[in-house]
C-alpha cells in the first residue's frame, strides 16, 4: 500500500544531474506562491481560534477579529458548554456521528465483502444494483416525502438512514477486499471457517487501514450533515452543530441562547462575560475541531489506490 506521504514525485533524493539549476528568481517566486497558499488556508483558522480565546478588551482594541493572541481566556467555551443550544447541538451531532458511522460501516463492509468475489451467484446483478446509484438520483422531493412518510420527521434517524450507504465507499472497500489473496481465504475455508468468520477474523484485520479511512469518510459526512436537518428537523433541541453555526454566523442570530451574557469565573482572571464575537468564534471552533482531530489519521492511511480506484468508480 502506498501512503500519501510516499506518493513521491519522480525524484526520491535531490536533483538529477541532467536537470538545470533553478534560477534564484524562480525559487523565490515558488516560495512566495507556496507561502500564500498556506496562509490562505491557515490564517482564517488562526484568527477564529485566537478570537474565540480573547476577552472583550482585546476584541474591542483590535476592532473585531484578533490576529495576535494576548491572553488565554476560555470563558466563551465555558459558557457554550454550560447547557443551552450549543451543548445540545454538540450532543446531537456526536450521537448522529457515532451511530451513523457504526451503521454505515457495518452495512458497507458486509456488502463489500459479499461482492468481493467474482463468480458468486447473483454477483453481477447485485453489483449493478449498487453501481446504478451513481447514475440514478433519488430527487429531493420524493426523498422528502419518503422520509416524512416513514414518520422520521424530528427523528435523528432522518439524518442517518438516507445517507447510510455510499456506493462510492462500497466500491473502495470492495476493491481492497478483492486484492486479498484467495489462497488465504481458501485455506480458512478448508479449516471449516464460514464466510462471516472469514470476514471478521481474516479480511477485516488485514484491511484495518482502508476500513478506518472509509469509516472516517462516513464520520466526516455525518458531522457535516446540514441540509437533512433543515428538511427533517423542526425541534430546536435536535439541531446539529452545522445548523447552529449557520444560525449564528450566517443568519446573524445573536448567541444569547448559547449563553451570551452569562458571567463565568475564571481563576486568575476573575469574573467575565465573554463577548458575543468570542462565543460565535467558539462555535466555529467546535464545528471544526473534529475534522482537525481525525485528519492526521486520514492522511496517514489514505492510499493512492483508494483515491485512484475511487475516481475510476
Amino acid at each position: 500500500m502506498t501512503t500519501l506521504a510516499q506518493l513521491k514525485p519522480r525524484r526520491p533524493s535531490g536533483r538529477p544531474v541532467w536537470e538545470e539549476k533553478p534560477s534564484r528568481l524562480g525559487q523565490l517566486g515558488k516560495g512566495t506562491v507556496i507561502a500564500i497558499i498556506i496562509a490562505v488556508v491557515v490564517v482564517p483558522l488562526w484568527v477564529v481560534v485566537v478570537t474565540s480565546l480573547s476577552s472583550t478588551e482585546t476584541i474591542n482594541s483590535a476592532g473585531g477579529y484578533v490576529f495576535l493572541p494576548r491572553e488565554f481566556n476560555p470563558s466563551a467555551y465555558i459558557v457554550i458548554f454550560q447547557g443551552g443550544q450549543v451543548t445540545d447541538a454538540v450532543l446531537v451531532s456526536t450521537i448522529v456521528t457515532v451511530i451513523g458511522t457504526a451503521v454505515s460501516l457495518s452495512v458497507t463492509v458486509l456488502a463489500a465483502y459479499g461482492l468481493s468475489r467474482t463468480g458468486t451467484l447473483l454477483h453481477r446483478p447485485i453489483l449493478f444494483y449498487f453501481l446504478l446509484t451513481f447514475l440514478i438520483y433519488p430527487g429531493m422531493i420524493p426523498s422528502y416525502l419518503v422520509v416524512t412518510g416513514l414518520g422520521l420527521k424530528d427523528n435523528l434517524l432522518a439524518l442517518v438512514l438516507p445517507a447510510a450507504v455510499s456506493a462510492f465507499n462500497l466500491v473502495v472497500l470492495r476493491a481492497f477486499f478483492m486484492g486479498i489473496p484467495t489462497e488465504l481465504l481458501d485455506s480458512a475455508r478448508i479449516d471449516g471457517a464460514g464466510e462471516f468468520r472469514i470476514l471478521f477474523r481474516i479480511v477485516l484485520p488485514l484491511s484495518k487501514a482502508v476500513t478506518a479511512v472509509v469509516g472516517l469518510f462516513y464520520a466526516v459526512g455525518y458531522w457535516n450533515t446540514f441540509f437533512n436537518a433543515v428538511l427533517y428537523l423542526d425541534r430546536n433541541d435536535l439541531q446539529p452543530v452545522q445548523r447552529v453555526l449557520q444560525m449564528f454566523i450566517l443568519a446573524g442570530q445573536s448567541p444569547t441562547n448559547a449563553g451570551a451574557g452569562t458571567v463565568v469565573h475564571l481563576p486568575g482572571i476573575g469574573y467575565t462575560a465573554p463577548p458575543n464575537l468570542a462565543i460565535k468564534m467558539a462555535v466555529v471552533v467546535v464545528t471544526l475541531v473534529p475534522a482537525l482531530i481525525i485528519y492526521p489519521f486520514v492522511q496517514r492511511h489514505f492510499t493512492k489506490g483508494v483515491i485512484v480506484g475511487a475516481i475510476k468508480g
Binding site: 456488502a111 451467484l121 416525502l145 419518503v146
Partner: peptide
C-alpha cells in the same frame, strides 16, 4: 455455496431500496 455472501449484501440493498430507489421511482 454463496448464500452467506448474498445475505451480507441485503442490509445495504434494503437501505438503498427505501432511501434511494423508492424516491427515484417517486419521481
Amino acid at each position: 455455496r454463496d448464500w452467506p455472501l448474498i445475505l451480507m449484501c441485503i442490509p445495504a440493498m434494503l437501505l438503498l431500496a427505501v432511501f434511494h430507489y423508492l424516491p427515484a421511482l417517486g419521481n
